[in-house]
Amino acid sequence: MINFFQPYAEYGGEWLPVLLDAMLKTTLLSISAFALAVVFGLLLWFCQASSAPSLRHFASLYVTVVRGVPLLAVLFLLYFGLPGIGVTFDAFTAAMLGLALCFAAQVAEVFRAGMMAIPKGQREAALAVGFTPGQCFAFIILPQVVRVVLSPMIVTFVSLLKDSSLASLITVDELVLTGRAMATEYFLPLQIYIAVGLCYFLVAWPFSLLSRRLAVR
């Protein structure tokens, strides 16, 4: 046991700034990918709710494909595959785009479920008292949907944060890739990968607690 903890005492000072830096990168990647996923997810949700059959078919095909294809395959296609047909992204952009494309389906599903929780009468009543459909959506429906979707959205963010670790496999220097580099440098894979795991835990756990607290209400 002494042997296990000793490297932390010895190298902790060197590891900490490097890990914090990588944590920042992971967080940055996750937040920007999540923001993009919300935008894509909302677009997808509008397609699903649209009255045009072609848009609805597109949305349902999109959701099926995204649910059936692993994120890793999407990331490899975007980063290694697309240059073959002349489209090149840097690793960070490819990771952000891949995560956003995959999580858009989940975001759309969260919004759909949230929308279903709002009784139809709300809209009918708002229209009856003279709100325009746009006003009705913005002032009556949306504020309520946001309250319902907040907790599942945070759960989605935590999944995205964890899946951002796959970006290490397309050379984004986030937590896992930084951990790998450190593991080869110090030959202490157990201690380093546990430290990396704890870094994720420190970011993800507060969000998990928050989502549970919000869900109870």
């Binding site: 951990g179 593991a183 157990l190 201690q191 990968y193 546990i194 994720y200």
Partner: peptide, 15 residues
């Protein structure tokens, strides 16, 4: 649930 699969796999396999 709050640590990525990749991280667990590295601990088990390399660690």
């Amino acid at each position: 649930r709050n640590i990525p699969a990749l991280s667990h796999l590295f601990i088990l396999y390399f660690g």
